[in-house]
């Protein structure tokens, strides 16, 4: 290594006092006024929550780990997991049908999305719950062979099963669109290169297209999972004993409505927070082939606080 004498090319003396200059930031009055107003609001809201006896924080705290609340929370989590898993499977199948070369499959898949996204979830839920009104029995019979099995619809369409079926079908409609958009976002050249190497359609989807589509699928799917968690509170209408239903049945007896709603809100917020952290790590995993130098803490905070910046990396 040879050190090169810096050469003065400006024609000015070299010893001008550059480092001694002080930077005076621009005055940002707007921001200070904004902060003052926000703090004022925070103060009044906080005061109202803390001092209004209707909130009854003590009662809320007592119910926080109440066994029935815990059971309800468990049911809510179970519903979310089962429905999400089923919806991912159905949604993937529908999305693959939508990008398939077959016009029949495409049309079927579009019709599916149109219907299950179009009808409100609550109506679908109550519809499935009342399925037995339409079909008293479900049976499989083959002409010439006879009936293989026959069951009473009410026996297997329990409230829980209706909830799972209805909300999975509905959620799958949303996920299908997310997955399709993800598949479409993978450049066509990837498909061609893989076909050129002799990979089959299935292999290309599974090994090349879907893994790359994941980067685009995971962030909105995380959002879907979070909204599904909250959507499961609809099952209260068909008497599935989830978190919200349990709280309702308690305050119907004790009239401690607000404290129990606080308990419910707390648990939903808690689970959403945990899910956001999980989503953050999933995103990191699927974005590993194009990771930039970045501060993981800042990214975690961003994804917790809902900033979508940087979650869809190009």
């Amino acid at each position: 290594m040879s050190l090169v004498e810096p050469k003065n090319t400006t024609g000015l003396p070299l010893d001008l006092p550059v480092e001694e200059l002080v930077v005076v930031p621009r005055r940002r009055y707007g921001i200070w006024i904004g902060i003052a107003i926000a703090m004022l609001f925070a103060f009044f809201i906080g005061k109202a929550f803390a001092t209004n006896p209707a909130f009854d924080w003590g009662t809320a705290a007592n119910y926080l780990f109440h066994p029935s609340i815990m059971r309800g929370l468990g049911k809510t989590l179970l519903l979310t997991v089962v429905i999400m898993a089923a919806a991912i499977v159905i949604g993937t199948i529908i999305a693959i049908m939508r990008v398939s070369p077959s016009a029949v499959l495409q049309t079927f898949a579009s019709a599916y999305v149109w219907f299950f996204r179009g009808v409100p979830a609550l109506i679908q839920l109550i519809f499935w719950f009342n399925l037995s009104l339409l079909f008293r029995t479900a049976s499989l019979s083959i002409p010439g062979v006879g009936t293989i099995f026959s069951v009473n619809t009410n026996d297997f369409m329990t409230p829980f099963v209706s909830a799972v079926v209805a909300l999975s079908l509905c959620e799958a409609g949303y996920l299908a669109e997310i997955i399709r958009a993800g598949i479409k976002s993978v450049p066509h050249g990837q498909f061609e290169a893989a076909s050129g190497l002799g990979m089959s359609y299935r292999q290309i989807l599974r090994r090349i297209i879907l893994p790359q589509a994941m980067r685009f699928i995971v962030p909105p799917t995380g959002n879907e999972a979070i909204s599904l968690l909250k959507m499961t509170s609809l099952v209260t209408f068909i008497a599935v004993d989830d978190l919200f239903y349990t709280a309702q049945s308690i305050y119907a007896r004790t009239f401690e409505t607000i404290p129990l709603l606080i308990v419910v809100a707390f648990w939903y917020l808690f689970v959403v927070t945990v899910m956001s952290i999980g989503q953050h790590f999933l995103e990191r995993y699927y974005g590993r082939s194009d990771r930039r130098q970045e501060n993981p803490l800042i990214r975690l905070l961003q994804s917790l606080l809902g900033s979508r910046k940087g979650s869809v990396q190009s």
Binding site: G189, Q190, E192, A193, G196, G198, Q212, S289, D290
Partner: peptide, 25 residues
């Protein structure tokens, strides 16, 4: 059949203008 088509294609290499490397691998 698709499987035979794939087998034959595997014998014909192709290099593209835009490389098309599998970017997740």
């Amino acid at each position: 059949k698709d499987s035979l088509l794939c087998k034959r294609r595997a014998d014909i290499g192709m290099v593209f203008q835009s490389f098309n490397l599998f970017s997740h691998m």
